[in-house]
Design a protein around this nucleic acid. Structure first.
Lengths: 342, 342
DNA sequence: CCGGTTTACGCAACCGGTTGCGTACGGACC
DNA sequence: GGTCCGTACGCAACCGGTTGCGTAAACCGG
């Protein structure tokens, strides 16, 4: 049962009684093919189940119909880890829908060269870069070689690159306002590492709310910790022992908030009565902490989808209304903040 | 600043004063090239920073130096979701180390055809299939087209495919034994969906321990729920209200265990004094439930690594000692089970 | 009916490696 | 010195699409 040798464009041409070049032009919708011929070719391609060989096309055109997503592996600041499955799923769907395939690259700061090399050698058409930092050399290097690039979760000012992010700032601001409205006037922002872009925005939102509340706020401060429950709990111990002890803590992630809940329990504080706590990310465990965590849900699927769409537009050279997209987040109120806070 | 046109094998040949064919043979370590020539070519390639064009090679050889990992998207049974980042990271590392690139495909039962098509068209050299079910048509279809395939987390009997799994059964057995040893003689296994391969193994381990303990066990039963905290909590409510009420519950995942903890709290039961609870997966939140969860850590990194190594061996036609690998799990004892249980 | 355009299509080169086959050269051996 | 053989290497076809250029036919207005 030897496979019936793979169909080539020349086979189709022979059946249609035309040359291979004509079939190629017909397939790609180029001018110079008669309408009747075009339809005949289309019909034959369909009947025979012919599929172009992407490799051959790639060799002659330089395009690959492939986009790469670079998966950062800085194990220590795994900020994006929990959100990858959703993001990758959305990207994959969008890619498949547009006839692209997805190449997965892993990157550490040491391997910038390898990523770049792969992008060039594989003729990758575009790159999605989730969780890039402001200093990520990859951004400039990629634009340097002319690779269309879309960032996720970092608002870069490098010209040419596009990005998709969400309203970290507005969410933090709204949560902070809510806590103030509920009478929590001693506030702490337990933030993640300040060089993470999202953390900067969350900080900005927090302080904006504090500023706009004026002297309604009795105290407000910001402490930075790693995205780690244990570390966060330790930091929270210290914060709660301070004077004044906060009555509301806005956390930059659910993992951090979980640590705060632990610390509060140790300190004998009732959440949310003595202390209001909010997280970020709406991780799956947020529903079963005690009490369940008020948090911020990120538009992961939309983010992936938007990024892919933007990238495809950039690849095909379409003009884009904007290369900066900010999607709305959603605050999910649960038991760790006073009811009716917002 | 027009790029200095990409180097081709013919450029190298010209510099070395040989033909392109000779350079190709030299690069690939084939016979028929003099030792002196071989070294000269190697030196020139190195000096010039020449890299073969994978696309061109692919067109003439049919190999692509690419493996695909098929990401199942059955949103409802996201058993693997939490473990993907670690798995993908390990796979990516191993692939990069061997000069392969990773293609990410998404699959739903409806899209088997598309996956197959992509594997063929892109000349994918091998496929990693995490979380395949026993009935997954992809397994047979892939072997049908001769694609080397390695499964993760499912022990298939289909000939030719390899798989890497871990000791779900031994872990469940050991946990169950431990509970019995701690005097918990009324046991329940709160299992996941029975068609998930890992759940079958966990069930087997549980019952093996029960059987071997003989009439030391006063009662034992198994209940199946979705991998969902809320659903698990509801099931646990019922189980705890039953007669006899269990003194130990082995759960098939940390998400399920979290639900059991919630239910125990509602029922006013003290964990681990009144009720011992164990999970599976060692999810990040397992350290900060109340009490912290005793659970089973899976060798995710090793699994990815082994799968990649096996796949590469299959691709290169090396004989393999075995195509079935079972890696050890590790039980992590925390506060949700009686101290010194094991 | 004629010169000039446009259109439809074939031809062949090209993308950049790989590989089967052929040849020239060097050494071994008689 | 001639035959034989193995080795080192060049040549050219090939993988399967794409595309610039050339040409013949169709079509246009006058």
């Amino acid at each position: 049962m030897n496979a019936p040798r793979k169909l080539t464009i020349r086979d189709i041409a022979a059946i249609a009684g035309v040359s291979a070049g004509t079939v190629s032009r017909a397939m790609n919708g180029q001018a110079g093919v008669g309408e009747e011929t075009r339809q005949r070719i289309a019909r034959i391609i369909d009947e025979q189940g012919f599929k172009v060989d992407p490799t051959a096309r790639q060799l002659s055109t330089g395009r690959s119909d492939t986009i790469a997503v670079v998966f950062p592996l800085h194990a220590s600041e795994v900020v994006m880890h929990p959100v990858y499955p959703a993001l990758l799923g959305a990207l994959g769907d969008a890619a498949e829908h547009s006839g692209f395939d997805l190449l997965l690259l892993t990157s550490s700061t040491a391997k910038v060269g390898h990523v770049l090399d792969t992008v060039k050698r594989r003729r990758v058409d575009g790159v999605v870069l989730p969780a890039a930092g402001p200093q990520d050399p990859l951004i400039k290097r990629l634009t340097g070689i002319g690779a269309p690039t879309v960032l996720i979760g970092h608002r870069s000012s490098v010209s040419g690159v596009g990005w998709v992010d969400c309203t970290h700032d507005a969410a933090a601001r709204e949560l902070t306002r809510g806590m103030l409205a509920a009478g929590r006037t001693d506030l702490v922002l337990l933030n993640g590492p300040p060089r993470v872009s999202a953390c900067k925005l969350r900080s900005a939102g927090f302080w904006a709310a504090v500023k706009e509340a004026g002297d309604q706020v009795s105290s407000a401060r910001e402490v930075s910790v790693a995205f780690d429950t244990i570390a966060a709990a330790a930091a929270a111990d210290e914060v709660l022992a301070g004077d004044p002890s906060p009555t509301g803590i806005v956390c930059a992630s659910d993992t951090i908030a979980a640590g705060v809940l632990d610390a509060a329990r140790r300190a004998g504080l009732k959440v949310p009565d003595d202390l209001a706590v909010s997280g970020f990310d709406d991780r799956s465990f947020a529903t079963h902490t005690t009490p369940p965590l008020t948090t911020v849900r990120m538009p992961l699927h939309d983010t992936g989808h938007s990024a892919a769409k933007m990238l495809f537009a950039m690849i095909s050279g379409e003009p884009l209304p904007t290369r900066r997209v900010i999607l709305p987040t959603e605050i999910v109120q649960r038991g760790s903040t006073p009811p009716g806070m917002l």
